[in-house]
Design a protein around this nucleic acid. Sequence first.
DNA 1: CTACGAATTCAAGCCAACTTGAGGTCAAGC
DNA 2: GCTTGACCTCAAGTTGGCTTGAATTCGTAG
Lengths: 146, 146
Amino acid sequence: MKFLDIGDVSAQTGVKPSALRYYEEIGLIQSLFRHGLRRQFSPDVLLQIKLITMGQSAGFSLEEIAAMFGKSGRPDLPRDALHRKADEIDDKIHQLTALRDTLRHVAECKAPSHMECPTFRRLVELSGKKGRVRLKRKRPQTPGVI
Amino acid sequence: MKFLDIGDVSAQTGVKPSALRYYEEIGLIQSLFRHGLRRQFSPDVLLQIKLITMGQSAGFSLEEIAAMFGKSGRPDLPRDALHRKADEIDDKIHQLTALRDTLRHVAECKAPSHMECPTFRRLVELSGKKGRVRLKRKRPQTPGVI
DNA sequence: CTACGAATTCAAGCCAACTTGAGGTCAAGC
DNA sequence: GCTTGACCTCAAGTTGGCTTGAATTCGTAG
């Protein structure tokens, strides 16, 4: 089995060595041993780091991420807490979906200010709701006024 | 028309007055005028703040949010840049979806360490890919070895 | 065997996004 | 007219997540 220098890990993940040292310092990842002074990492750490960066892009703190996937290689949290985290992510997905739709609408909308655009207001206001936002279907057979 | 004190805005949005003052300071929102010393806000600001918090939960900086929806009440960015932002959000949605699925899997998986679980590895490794992660369908009629 | 380069430690610094605290102002209700 | 409490300003502090820099230690290639 091959082990990885911090530079290899950095190259393969895009995360800087300084950040990796920091992650180790806070116990988020571990090196297996030292070769001289140099940390040697298991290839598994690449997967772990992927999870970390995913978690970060989801807006979770490193502490929360540690709780989810564990320093120990296994989650600190009980099953239901993990499901609650998953639910949290689901909420965030809904928010992001609304934001994306709003953004696309803003890109195309001709209204002088989006505050005056009812579609915009609906998109934003519905964003917290449980269901998906559903825009009225265009009815091509009756090309009314825009 | 009624105007809102900073306290009202705070109460209705859950954003602290200090944060709202900060937002105004950096030009992310505006108060219309002062009543004595007190800032008076248009009710429209509530919608704006909702967008801001959505943007934040998406991991955008206040600066990026300002560019998207504009200090000026209208985006600073041209249409295609907005669509690129929307694409960025789409990516994030995919990541979040993968993270959520991984988390739910971790919650249920019996493997001693998730590094040893092939399902786990697939979930994480596929997360960057374009399509949705598709788990193999169970085929109840041919109950093979797990 | 020596030089090189990649790694190390440690303390300090940095940025965004706020929060806190001290001291001051004001309008509305009694 | 006075008190009250919600607001104000401004400077300084905080937190998370790193980055930077100086001084040092190694392992390997030549």
